[in-house]
């Protein structure tokens, strides 16, 4: 089983990113679940979502304690939350950032999702949409296939700019 924890702020699309990722994994022929953790959060508060991907049906509902990978959609969350908590040694940290950030003992990648969203004019209520571009970065990392990523995005969104943003993230991600 491959377990991913997504850190974001309420309203940034972390929950939808988890759902897109699970849907793409299912299109790859895998089993997947996407579970947001609902606390007393509201717009702007740090939140987490969980994605599990496996070759067999997934029976676990509890929170992910030891993720294989962490995605940080809002780098400012790292000031208030230990995003590395429980991350397996050598596990990957993908950060939405222009600059690469090193984490001792872990692999790290970065991609400027915010910049991509602004370029593609994917902005809702003043917030850049990060959930569709991040799926492109995850396809680059081989978590899901490119075809399944695009299919999942098109099933959940009608605006083709979402696919373009994912393609941009695929191109621009640096490992």
């Amino acid at each position: 089983m491959f377990e991913i924890r997504i850190h974001s702020r309420g309203g940034q699309g972390g929950v939808t990113a988890a759902r897109l990722l699970a849907l793409a994994a299912i299109h790859d022929g895998k089993y997947a679940t996407a579970a947001p953790f609902y606390g007393a959060e509201r717009r702007g508060a740090p939140i987490v979502s969980f994605v599990r991907i496996d070759d067999k049906p997934i029976k676990i509902y509890s929170q992910i304690k030891k993720p294989d990978m962490v995605i940080v959609l809002d780098a400012s969350v790292m000031d208030v939350v230990d995003v590395l908590q429980g991350l397996k040694g050598g596990g990957n940290v993908l950060v939405n950032s222009q600059q690469k950030k090193e984490f001792s003992g872990y692999a790290s990648s970065n991609v400027d999702l915010t910049g991509i969203a602004l370029r593609e004019k994917l902005v809702v209520s003043g917030s850049p949409i990060l959930n569709t571009p991040v799926i492109g970065a995850l396809a680059k990392m081989g978590i899901v296939s490119v075809d399944s990523a695009k299919q999942a995005i098109r099933e959940m969104f009608t605006d083709e700019r979402n696919v373009k943003a994912a393609e941009a993230a695929y191109r621009e991600m640096s490992a």
């Binding site: 988890a18 759902r19 699970a22 849907l23 299912i26 089993y31 997947a32 679940t33 996407a34 579970a35 947001p36 609902y38 997934i58 509902y61």
Partner: peptide, 9 residues
């Protein structure tokens, strides 16, 4: 939440 809000196949 555990089931009402989780996404599964």
């Amino acid at each position: 939440f555990l089931l009402s809000h989780i996404m599964q196949p």
